[in-house]
Design a protein around this nucleic acid. Structure first.
Lengths: 117, 117
DNA sequence: ATAATTGTATTATATGTACTAATACAATTA
DNA sequence: TAATTGTATTAGTACATATAATACAATTAT
């Protein structure tokens, strides 16, 4: 698993890890029950501290997206059905906000749609 | 000038002030050469420290959007022509990113446009 | 003339978040 | 037996943010 950490972002590393793994799950890159790198391995690959990876994994487990098994490893949950809808809803909300702001600036719906194409 | 500070946001207070004043300028609410509240007044109104307002004003002055005159007050710049285009370009970039992500999730261009309407 | 207001500036302090460092333990696997 | 796993703890560092408490000079209002 290769995650590009962007140190210039305000977004903390552990959150970038969460977002990327969520993304790979929803896009089907990471499949249910698949094993993901151990805390130490990923930390080493990314050149960061294991605690930082552990924090990301804790959040993902809290969300029900991964399951950590002692001495076994960490795995994608077997039920990831909800996450995709949640993600799309999030994106649609952001889309809405931006479009409303563009409308405030005087652009018309047609102009926006034209630029999307 | 009423600015709603959202303390739950990751975005710092001074940046929320910058964003809101930029917004009011581009939307024509704050007009060129208009006087805006003093550092102390705004700080008092918002219930925050004057230094925080000062920081926001410094950034806005650095951007050329406001001008601070010693012992006189702080005023909107007389030339604010560029800022609107900059803001719209920013929004269009964000719009693009979100749409690309939605396309990744399997939505079609037509579905997205339909939801916009 | 006096008091209040303006922008400006400085120093010190507090706080929260992020991240790292250095370990340690128990259980499983090679 | 050695290596790997998740888990956990404690301590420390670094940074950004925000506040507190002042101070100064110039202008404005009373």
């Amino acid at each position: 698993m290769i995650i590009n950490i962007d140190y210039t972002k305000r977004c903390p590393i552990y959150e970038q890890i969460v977002t990327e793994i969520e993304r790979e799950i929803t896009l089907g890159i990471l499949k249910p029950n698949a094993q993901i790198p151990s805390v130490r391995t990923l930390a080493c690959d990314l050149g960061i501290n294991p605690n930082t990876v552990k924090k990301a994994y804790d959040i993902l487990e809290e969300k029900g997206l991964i399951i950590s098994k002692s001495t076994k490893g960490t795995f994608i949950s077997d039920d990831i059905s909800k996450i995709k809808d949640i993600k799309i809803t999030e994106l649609m909300t952001n889309l809405n906000d931006i479009i409303n702001e563009l409308l405030n600036y005087g652009l018309t719906k047609e102009e926006i749609i034209k630029k999307i194409k």
